[in-house]
Design a protein around this nucleic acid. Structure first.
Lengths: 123, 123
DNA sequence: CGGTATCCAAGTCGATACTG
DNA sequence: CAGTATCGACTTGGATACCG
């Protein structure tokens, strides 16, 4: 992806009219871990450390980065508790909820794809 | 994305079971121009140069690369004519066709997103 | 017409260490 | 607990030139 900040998409000037929102959406959800994050948050709101535990292999830096991206793009929101030390709860916005059905279709397609590939290997 | 070749996904070992096919799918369709390419091919099969004309700003190298990716992942196929000079027709496979409805949902979501963002700017 | 080859810039991820 | 800072590695995309 090439140097776009989310806010710049408002002035997108593609001549292929319908392609632009697709690229935008793929850019928003295309981070390496964003699918996992979204599918976790689609089940219930979740605290930062709970997410880390549910996503083995992700580093603190990367989790924070991806969460910031999603927050800046209006897909999730964060809410700090008053505990000490504080905890931060993440949850989907309405915009994020709207994407969940699409995420499910994507998951379904991916599973079908894996099946077909495995068929190929066996033959 | 991190060094995965498509074929390696068959041995994916994520503990978050459902997240893997999502990441796989986003990886297959996540290239910068793949959305545009797919939405063009969803309308009709298309020759290489016709695609170039319909996607202003893409270079030959990149178009070829993205087409190769999609071909290797089983989303599109190519067919050379016997003309001289030869022409190459690209078209969706069944697997690719299956993704078209999802692409439409993604486009719809993206348009809704752009609307909301523009509302924000005006207020 | 439909590509390759080369070379470079930018983006993205990751490991590690440190902090309020 | 939930980050930030730094630095390095790899991937992706782009400009340009050339080829069968």
């Amino acid at each position: 992806m090439s140097g776009f900040k989310s806010d710049q998409y408002g002035t997108c000037t593609f001549t292929v009219k319908q392609a632009c929102p697709i690229e935008l959406t793929m850019h928003i959800f295309g981070g390496k871990w964003k699918g996992i994050i979204l599918s976790l948050l689609s089940q219930s709101p979740m605290y930062y450390n709970a997410m880390r535990r549910e996503i083995p292999g992700i580093s603190q830096r990367i989790l924070t980065l991806q969460l910031r991206d999603l927050e800046n793009d209006g897909i999730i929101e964060r809410e700090e508790t008053n505990d000490n030390p504080k905890k931060v709860l993440y949850y989907l916005t309405a915009l994020g909820e709207d994407f969940v059905p699409i995420l499910k279709s994507i998951e379904t397609w991916g599973n079908a794809y894996l099946c077909k590939k495995n068929e190929h290997k066996r033959s």
